[in-house]
Every structure is written in C-alpha cells, then in structure tokens.
C-alpha cells in the first residue's frame, strides 16, 4: 500500500501506474529489466488506447508469466513458437493488435525459424525482444547472444567461438527480410535509453495499427542474478559490453513507418 500522504493541491501527477498493468507483484528478481519493459509495453498500450483489442503471446523463459502482469488477453506459446502463434491469431483476427514478447533463447535459438519467417511474410505483428545474453530461467546457460568470453553455467571457461559459435545479431538479420517494416535495437539501461525504448515500442505498435508489416524492437537488458552483479553494476556492464557488440540503431524503417507520428 502507498503511504497515506495528502497530495498538495497545487501538485499534479506526473507518473501513475499504467492501466494495462495488473496489480500483481512480479516474480522477477530484484532489478530485472523485464519489469521495466513490461511497464513500457503497458504504457504504450495505454497511450494508444488499444488494451481492449490487444492479444499478447507469451514466451517460454523468464517472461513466461508476462500474462500475469500485462492486462490484456494472452496466450502462452511453446518455446520459440510465439511468432507462429501470433501469425495464427492475427490471420483470423486481423482487427486485433497482436504482439509477442520474447527473450533471446526463445527468439534467437529455438524460435529462429519462426521469427524469421514471420518477419519475412510481413506478418502484421509486433515483437518485443529482450536480449540479456543469457538463459535466465533455466539457470544462466549460454544464449545465442552470449558474448565471446562470457562465463555462463554452460560455458564455464567463457564462450569460445571454436566450441560454441559466435553471438548472433538478430535485429540485423531480421532487417534483411523484405516483410519487416521496422527493426530497431534499444537499451533499457539508463533513463535516455528507457525513453528511446518506449518510443521504439510505440512505433512498432503503430506500424501494426496502420497495417504496415512486421515490426520488432530488440531491447538490451541485464540479468543481475545470473551475471552475478548488483542491478546497477549490471546495467553499467551491459552498456559497456553488450552495447559494444550490439549497436543501438534502427536497422530498418520504411518511409511509411518513418512518417507515423510517435
């Protein structure tokens, strides 16, 4: 409960709890960036006034319970299959707004085929892709996006490309597909980045609202627990290291998407 404090009459509310977020306390670890991005998605849904016609597709991974937090209709996909499920939903419900929320294991490993083909078909869906370079839920194993040299529970000596290949830049790959109209990478690691992330997510939803094609936003994030860093230190580490390998950029934006008022 909030402290019972009288708000002076000459004060206005500048931040309120988003309507599209449930009151549930999340299961995420302290400082987990999922909480920030969930909130941004909810704020965007509120601002666009689309809560009543939005259908979310939940991933497998730490965000598996996202439907407990974002207050819209939801389905729970099998690991990696969210874009296929979203395709099925959107094709039979073209007037609804359909989004997937996926992590790096879900989107960049087991679901690589589904995301690339959904993008290439130009499915009118929105994808929010959280990249924290590790498998959080299963205990900190290597993700496709794990940096070289990064120690995880399945790369005890650090990721070695001779053994485990190279980190994958998924947004750059998705931007190659003809059906994608908007592909961006942002970082929810500081205030400016969080604001830019929200703007990108809004643009990706708007692209769908206007029926333009596939839109995705990759969000660089942290995993304080499995990285073994406190949440603030994890953000600084991510800015320096993830940011160096995964440039923040808009990899694809069509003129129609560019013209959308965000």
């Amino acid at each position: 409960m909030s402290q019972a404090v009288a708000v002076p009459e000459d004060m206005e509310q500048v931040y309120a709890y988003p309507r599209s977020l449930t009151q549930a306390n999340s299961h995420y670890c302290p400082g987990c960036v999922h909480g920030i991005v969930h909130r941004l998605v909810a704020e965007v849904i509120d601002e666009l006034g689309i809560r009543e016609k939005t259908i979310g597709v939940a991933p497998v991974g730490c965000a598996v319970l996202v439907y407990n937090y974002i207050n819209t209709d939801f389905v729970e996909a099998a690991h990696g299959r969210a874009p296929a499920m979203a395709t099925g939903i959107k094709r039979v419900s073209p007037d609804k707004i359909v989004f997937t929320y996926q992590g790096d294991g879900d989107l960049a490993a087991i679901g690589t085929a589904e995301i690339i083909h959904a993008a290439n078909r130009g499915e009118r869906i929105t994808t929010v892709f959280i990249n924290n370079a590790i498998y959080g839920m299963t205990g900190g194993q290597m993700a496709p996006t794990t940096l070289e040299g990064m120690i995880t529970t399945s790369t005890p000596g650090g990721r070695d490309h001779l053994l485990a290949g190279y980190p994958m830049r998924m947004s750059e790959i998705l931007a190659q597909t003809a059906g994608a109209v908007y592909v961006a990478r942002e970082a929810a690691l500081d205030l400016a980045g969080i604001r830019r992330t929200k703007r990108a997510i809004k643009r990706a939803f708007l692209a769908q609202i206007h029926g333009l094609g596939f839109a995705s936003v990759e969000v660089l994030a942290t995993c304080p627990t499995n990285w073994g860093l406190d949440p603030w230190a994890a953000m600084q580490w991510a800015k320096e290291n993830l940011g160096a390998f995964y440039p923040l950029d808009t990899f694809k934006i069509t003129d129609e998407v560019k013209a959308l008022p965000v």
């Binding site: 597709v57 395709t87 939903i89 083909h117």
Partner: peptide, 26 residues
C-alpha cells in the same frame, strides 16, 4: 478464409494453436 503454407510443421501446428485460441474452426 485463411490459408497459409507454413515454414514447417512445427510452425503450422503453432499457427493452428494460435488461431484455435481465437475460437475459430481450424
């Protein structure tokens, strides 16, 4: 009505799953 050739049977059944969640005959 909706027809889509999927990229695999894995994708096909999950598209079916998604559409079925919308309450249509699929």
């Amino acid at each position: 009505r909706v027809f889509l050739q999927a990229e695999s049977e894995v994708a096909a059944i999950n598209m079916v799953y998604g559409a079925a969640c919308c309450g249509v005959r699929v």
